[in-house]
Nucleic acid binder design. Structure first.
Lengths: 189, 189
DNA sequence: GAAAAGTGTTGCGCTATAGCAACGTTTTGA
DNA sequence: TCAAAACGTTGCTATAGCGCAACACTTTTC
């Protein structure tokens, strides 16, 4: 099994080398070009992706045509449209590679079968859901309770690495502001 | 077991009457007065609560002293500070009864023990997390992509029942706007 | 059941952010 | 490698929502 994924599991559950190798069989390595799409709005999401290298972005386009960046998955993270994966409904979002990326893809049906039948995967999935929930909650409170400048400062503090790696346009759309405003806020830092 | 909780489980998993009775032993019925607190900011959350009747509200107070309502649990829902329950960290929020309420309380340790050892509870918890995640996601996209009037329309469409039951002050703080703005928006509907 | 506290509405001025235009810089791709 | 496209910044104006104050109405409390 790929080292990055292996340590992802080992960090979250006790699991034997042998079991890891069994699980490895379900993941297929794929490479994607910069800007390539893994999923488009309206399609049903069929896979979960683990990022070995590169970077995924989940985003939607609102009725006015503006992009809203929902989530960024860097190396060592799973990225997928969980909502579509869980509900089986068409996604309301796009998944795009922001860089040339190497991913490990696991089929939706295999994934949920493992969740049901492999205690280690059940536990890891629970931890993924718990941490996704907590992250998402914090993001709401950020939007609900803070102004743009505070949100920007918070992002710089927590993910300094993405500045420089992602364009300001994308960072602005993640913060829920326009690139104009982001550019102006940066002068107030 | 209390009928409301029983049907909550039966709607989400296959479970025998006998197993339900076993589980019932872990829940204690308690009643609370209007405005009584179950948890205050800074305390570690020790229980999960199922609402039999009445209504819970989770909220925080920001540095400027403004309340942000995070979640409302009506009859037939679980309500707790999941983030504090999961992480064991002090809560960043208050849990308050908005009405005289009857709740079924389950201890945190018992709850997670059942998650580990009772497949039915494991499954139900997973479904709670999945749906909490999905709900929270939608709420972000609402904040990130819509203006206040759209958010209000959306809330009216989805939860018409809470208008009349909750004060405008609380609805405004849920929408992330001031009561002044809510009052004005309502004239534009 | 009277006083106090809380709630909802509205006028007014203030602030943060949007959105267009213009322009220089960087990136992209045939 | 060079033209075209995309990006980042900044001046300007427009607008959504804030927050105070005032007032009427309702609910709570003792």
């Amino acid at each position: 099994m790929h080292e990055t994924l292996k340590s992802y599991f080992q960090k979250r559950t006790q699991i034997t080398e042998q079991k890891l190798e069994e699980l490895a069989a379900y993941f297929k390595e794929k490479t994607f070009k910069k800007n390539e799409f893994l999923l488009r709005e309206g399609e049903v999401c069929k896979s979960n992706y683990f990022v070995v290298s590169g970077c995924l972005r989940l985003y939607s386009i609102n009725p006015e045509g503006l992009e809203n960046t929902r989530y960024i998955a860097l190396e060592g993270k799973f990225g997928t449209s969980f909502t579509s994966l869980i509900t089986g409904q068409p996604a309301t979002e796009y998944i795009q590679c922001l860089e040339k990326s190497t991913l490990l893809e696991i089929n939706k049906d295999d994934f949920f079968l493992l969740v049901e039948n492999e205690p280690a995967v059940n536990l890891v999935y629970r931890k993924i859901l718990e941490s996704a929930y907590i992250t998402t909650q914090k993001r709401i409170y950020d939007f609900q309770g803070s102004d743009s400048l505070q949100r920007l400062k918070f992002l710089i503090e927590k993910h300094p690495n993405i500045f420089g790696r992602l364009s300001n346009k994308i960072i602005a759309s993640y913060l829920g502001i326009t690139p104009y405003t982001l550019s102006r806020l940066k002068t107030n830092l």
